[in-house]
């Protein structure tokens, strides 16, 4: 019985993931138990074999040099000049701080919108824009299981002009999300869904698309998720699809 208890924790012990007290108990048990001792030895051998086999590939010197050049530090600045500039910067900082909260939020928001537009365009330009091809929301929704760390509802599209073309996984700011593609009178519209907490603050609810974007975009937050609907369809059509999602969530 004691052995069974230790065997269940054997990998955790050998990975050094048990509390110190349990590790001491395990050590004492192994010294007096040939079965657990042999088991531990075999697993240690396996760990070592993976360690050796896993260190298989080494980059070429040329590749390393190339990478180092790409991320090399900037040239050294004069420290005295730095302080002179810093004094000037302090003045700018005072003025800048007053406006930067507003502008910073706008800048962060615009960057997210810009990336959403990039994702939309890049996907439509791809030869395989979707990973799951289906018009059935009951096929598309389960496809995301295990791929993204949240669940969301897709709207019923009967009696609407929208049809679902498929979906794919996507990433924004290193965060996984869902990308759904809809068709409406030959216009392709993307719907992106991400966890709200993973995105910058200041993405105002119902923000209208920034002027510099060549698409209509609508975004809102609902149930801890951030939705983006983007496409070259009219603002009214984008809003219609957004309303369907809001009603479904």
């Amino acid at each position: 019985m004691v052995c069974e208890s230790w065997k269940a924790k054997l990998d955790n012990c050998l990975d050094g993931e048990l509390p110190e007290e349990e590790m001491r108990g395990f050590d004492a048990h192994v010294r007096n138990c040939p079965s657990c001792s042999a088991d531990a030895l075999a697993r240690v051998q396996m760990k070592r074999a993976i360690q050796v086999a896993g260190k298989r590939y080494a980059p070429s010197a040329e590749f390393r040099k190339r990478m180092q050049q790409k991320i090399a530090a900037k040239p050294q600045r004069s420290f005295g000049l730095g302080w002179t500039l810093a004094a000037a910067a302090a003045v700018i900082l005072v003025v800048g701080t007053l406006t930067s909260a507003y502008l910073g939020t706008r800048s962060g928001r615009d960057q997210v919108f810009s990336e959403i537009a990039d994702l939309h365009v890049a996907t439509l330009a791809s030869s395989s824009p979707v990973d799951v091809i289906s018009t059935d929301r009951h096929t598309v929704k389960p496809w995301f299981q295990g791929k993204i760390p949240f669940a969301f509802n897709l709207p019923e599209l009967q009696n609407t002009e929208f049809s679902l073309l498929g979906a794919r996984m996507t990433y924004l700011d290193q965060t996984p999300g869902a990308h759904l593609i809809y068709d409406m009178r030959k216009h392709h519209i993307s719907v992106f869904v991400f966890q709200e907490r993973s995105l910058p603050a200041g993405l105002d609810d119902n923000s209208l698309s920034p002027k510099q974007l060549p698409f209509n975009l609508e975004t809102w937050s609902q149930g801890g998720l951030r939705y983006f609907v983007i496409g070259d369809a009219s603002a009214a059509d984008i809003d219609s699809l957004a309303k369907l999602f809001k009603a479904a969530s």
Binding site: A73, W83, A89
Partner: peptide, 24 residues
Amino acid sequence: FFVGYGNKTLVGWFTLVCMPEESL
């Protein structure tokens, strides 16, 4: 001297010029 919007960016630039070379 500097063109930037974000609060963080401005502070970042201030830090950049004040900091010793090794901590850029």
